[in-house]
Design a protein around this nucleic acid. Structure first.
Lengths: 268, 268
DNA sequence: CTCAATTTGTTCGTATGTATG
DNA sequence: ACATACATACGAACAAATTGA
């Protein structure tokens, strides 16, 4: 029994697929550079402790993907053109979040006028009613996130047309009449259900990044609740550990007067 | 051809596994409450457009997991005791990071005295030499992260014994003689290679959160470079969008004099 | 109590995919 | 390339348990 069979039992994914993904990672991470000759079939056979045919199946997959080229009698080589992935940087503060949304064009899927969001503990209080907006975000014709937004009805009614056609947060950011008390985001790793898989063009069960984003106004009401599902492939998160700059009130030039977070309580 | 077959082609994961994970998500998300009767086999058959037996295989998996209970003639029900997962909150600032590390006991795997870390663009300059520490972090006997730390040799030599036996960042935090200029973290979603899968007790290819954490001293040298791989299951990330409090210099009571990040440049 | 409707449980046959040696 | 074994997936038929009319 191969060393991997214990792990194989855990995963249930066909062995040759597993081997393929390990090899793919080695190429994409640069562990095997472009043009380089990779281990021989025999070496791989021994390393993974699987049959020769199984290794071949794995290599075949990567050949179809264009990552590998095999030449009889010579060996298997990493293709030259290994274009690196283009990353989408997830925003970790209000300003960059708004900035990143400005260019985006959401494709609206549906609007539902009678729906309530799920709130966690520190997500403020429910508004009396919400409008639910569903859309998909694209970047170069490629879908990269599914967005489910619950917008407090009173806020939506202030600029219904604008909210229907632009990113909701950008619109909120522009509205002088709204003052924010808090805005936060909770991220977890999930996996794509059939519907999301279809929208994002990824396999069912593929890992996703699920963001639960809540904006609370000065009345303590959750006026915006966004549940956003990103395809995890192209997501990067940059976090400055030593105090990212606080959002300063001067930001008000754009209309939003932001309450500074309280210095206390956080570490209580 | 079933609606899912196109997606199936994308994923290559056995159909019944895919169906099982969708059902599992519905239960864990509370979409199907505890005690509730779920759709009949026939309905699921139609929804997923797969054969009866395939649905049954999926249900069987969840029964073995204890999530479902089936009763002939009656239906299939969600088990009462759906204990929710216990999350590990990833730290997003220095103080909470240090705090979260203090209790932890790393199990050292190896020490390598001749190894260089991979640095990204804004990761500062390389020190002349590094010590590489490899360990696994546990929480209640369960492994949850694999840690690969490169520590500047000069820093390591100041307290070699301490660094060998405690979390490196905590030790750095305690050292008066070190002043920090910058510390940041880059997160991406990856997948487990055989070695990591074995250490974290997860299937090969299971999604992981890869953190690239860099600490730069006042000389611009990357004195600490940690590549940490978390099992993604139990990771939560909480981000305050409206200005998380900056780490104040008063923190120096603990020995570390921290340079405030510069107000400029960031948005240049 | 019996009957019918509903729903899970079981089995057969067949075709294809996966993995070994 | 071949022979073997087992896993995956389909469709269909039938058996067994539960409920309510």
């Amino acid at each position: 029994m191969s060393k991997l069979l214990k792990a194989y039992d855990r995963s249930r994914v066909p062995l040759y697929i597993q081997v393929a993904s390990v090899l793919r990672t080695r190429i994409q991470s640069g562990q095997w550079a472009a043009g380089e000759k990779i281990s021989t079939l025999e070496e791989l056979e021994q390393e993974f402790e699987v049959a020769r045919v199984t290794v071949r199946q794995a290599v075949d997959i990567l050949r179809e993907e264009g990552l590998l080229q095999a030449r009889q009698g010579l060996g298997t080589f990493v293709s030259r053109k290994t274009q690196d992935r283009h990353w989408v940087k997830l925003a970790t503060n209000w300003n960059s979040l708004i900035e990143s949304l400005k260019g985006n064009v959401p494709r609206r899927l549906s609007i539902d006028y009678d729906s309530k969001p799920n709130l966690a503990d520190s997500d403020g209080e429910l508004a009396s009613s919400y409008v639910k907006l569903r859309s998909v975000q694209y970047r170069n014709e490629d879908p990269y996130s599914v967005v489910n937004v619950h917008l407090a009805r009173e806020v939506f009614d202030l600029k219904p047309d604008r909210f229907k056609n632009a990113a909701a947060l950008v619109t909120i950011d522009e509205m002088r009449e709204i003052t924010l008390r808090n805005a936060h985001q909770m991220l977890v790793i999930g996996s794509a259900d059939p519907e999301v898989a279809d929208l994002l063009k990824i396999p069912i069960g593929a890992p996703t990044v699920e963001a639960h984003c809540v904006v609370i106004d000065d009345g303590g009401i959750a006026i915006y609740v966004g549940d956003i599902i990103y395809r995890s492939e192209s997501i990067k998160l940059q976090i400055d550990l030593l105090g990212p700059q606080p959002v300063l009130p001067k930001r008000g030039r754009n209309g939003v007067k932001v309450d500074l977070p309280r210095r206390k309580s956080r570490r209580a």
